[in-house]
Nucleic acid binder design. Structure first.
Length: 382
RNA sequence: GCGGCUAUCGUUCAAUGGUAGGACAUCAGGUUGUGGUCCUGAGAAUGAGGGUUCAAUUCCCUCUAGUCGCC
């Protein structure tokens, strides 16, 4: 299901990934449509940005609207009217950040995690088996094992515990996945891909160990879990590099939660193929815009790799200095915002809280990310 | 013209006879498998002149500027 086309000049893995809802050229970036929606954007808006796939979240959709509704709609594709590929996050990250942040919010047992809804306080339970079943009900193209992502600040001993639990749960996810596939009678073309997630914090030996054991169980793809930046915010270059090398060459590698444009480029150069992050949409809503320093159509991936911090810049459009800046946001971008409106107008919209501001800014940043991924693919079509 | 009221960061509200506080705005950071129209930090003010007092932004007088009412 995962194939490569290598280009001699390329510094990156370039290929394509085939899933039930289509073929995706790699590397690619998925914006987070956590609650089956990218905040503020319609499906038509999303298509215009060049986004090829999105991430929805098991945890959030399980709580709202609930699986009965999603099943009733005929799956999340139909529910949100998106016909392209979708990946679901397992909910592990949400449940654990909830519990790690405040132990009153839930308890972790070998069986799974009991937690309280952050919305209304109601009690719920998620386990490897349940997370897999939910993701099948969502009807996504790619799903992720229910895992335990510990904060990087934890002791090595506690991170080792998280690795062990992640591995035990990965085995249970694998079994549950095989059960669901046969129970639902899914053919090879219909079945979603299952990703195991490598934990281990900043410890190279734990990352290697976890990667080896997951490979032993066998998954369609492998993910990098927990944070890829240190507590101080520094990119964990060696950890990302070593972990990628510890994974099978022929499987897609998903760097969960990565990241800033620079982080994505670095990870792609280490051999990571898939990315998702809230940065382009969240920062867009808050008024930070990504812009090209040079025309991306003239850039190669080696140009970008050699100018990691210089190929783009950001600016905060809500600052007063943009009050009377009637120029376009990015002279190299062809999105709705850049071809129709000025920085001054966008600033105005964001400051008065007009929803159109968040929409245009998110759309622009996603267009920037899509363009970046095209450059990493040496994709001539722009 | 007469009378009342008001005067505090850029704006808008507090407070006090002894270090003037908040909100919004400004500026600077931050946001990484979305509990985020969010989080952290910084700079920023007692209209002017007199008087009472150890000490006045606070009490008194004058001026100035607003504001309301009456002619």
């Amino acid at each position: 299901m995962f194939s490569f086309k290598h280009f001699d000049s390329s510094l990156f893995r370039q290929g394509s990934l085939t899933v039930p809802h289509g073929e995706i050229p790699t590397p690619f970036f998925m914006p987070d449509a956590t609650r089956a929606s990218i905040r503020g954007l319609s499906v038509a808006d999303i298509e215009r940005t060049g986004v090829s796939a999105m991430v929805v979240n098991t945890f959030h959709l399980f709580l709202h609207p609930g699986m009965e509704i999603v099943r009733g709609a005929g799956g999340v594709h139909r529910f949100m009217n998106w016909s392209g590929p979708l990946l679901s996050d397992s909910g592990g990250y949400q449940v654990f950040s909830l519990v790690h942040k405040n132990s009153q919010m839930g308890t972790i047992t070998e069986e799974g995690v009991h937690f309280r809804s952050p919305v209304d306080g109601s009690k719920h339970f998620l386990s490897p088996e349940k997370a897999i079943a939910i993701q099948f009900d969502l009807g996504v193209d790619m799903m992720v094992c229910f895992d335990d992502p510990p904060p990087n600040g934890y002791s090595k001993e506690r991170i080792r515990d998280a690795v062990d639990r992640t591995l035990r749960w990965a085995e249970r996810c694998r079994v549950a996945y095989d059960y669901e596939v046969s129970e639902r009678g899914l053919s090879l073309e219909q079945r979603p891909l299952l990703f195991g997630v490598v934990q281990g914090g900043e410890h190279l030996d734990l990352r290697r160990f976890c990667a080896e054991r997951l490979t032993g169980i066998g998954f369609d793809g492998y993910g990098f879990g927990a944070r890829h930046v240190s507590e101080e915010g520094d990119f964990l270059s060696e950890v990302l590099s070593v972990t990628a090398q510890a994974l099978p060459v022929e499987s897609p590698r998903f760097a969960l939660g990565v990241g800033s444009p620079s982080d994505i480029v670095r990870c792609a150069s280490f051999g990571w193929d898939m990315f998702d992050c809230v940065i382009p949409t969240r920062e867009g809503r808050h008024g930070r815009l990504f812009v090209w320093e040079k025309d991306p159509k003239t850039l190669s991936c080696s140009d970008i790799l050699s100018s990691l911090d210089d190929f783009f810049s950001t600016f905060t459009v809500v600052r007063s200095s943009f009050r009377d800046d009637f120029s376009r946001v990015d002279s190299f971008c062809d999105c709705m915002l850049c071809t129709n409106h000025s920085r001054s107008y966008l600033r105005h919209l964001l400051r008065v809280g007009e929803p159109l501001g968040a929409r245009l800014a998110s759309e622009h940043n996603l267009t920037f990310y899509s363009q970046l991924m095209r450059v990493l693919r040496n994709d001539s079509q722009v």
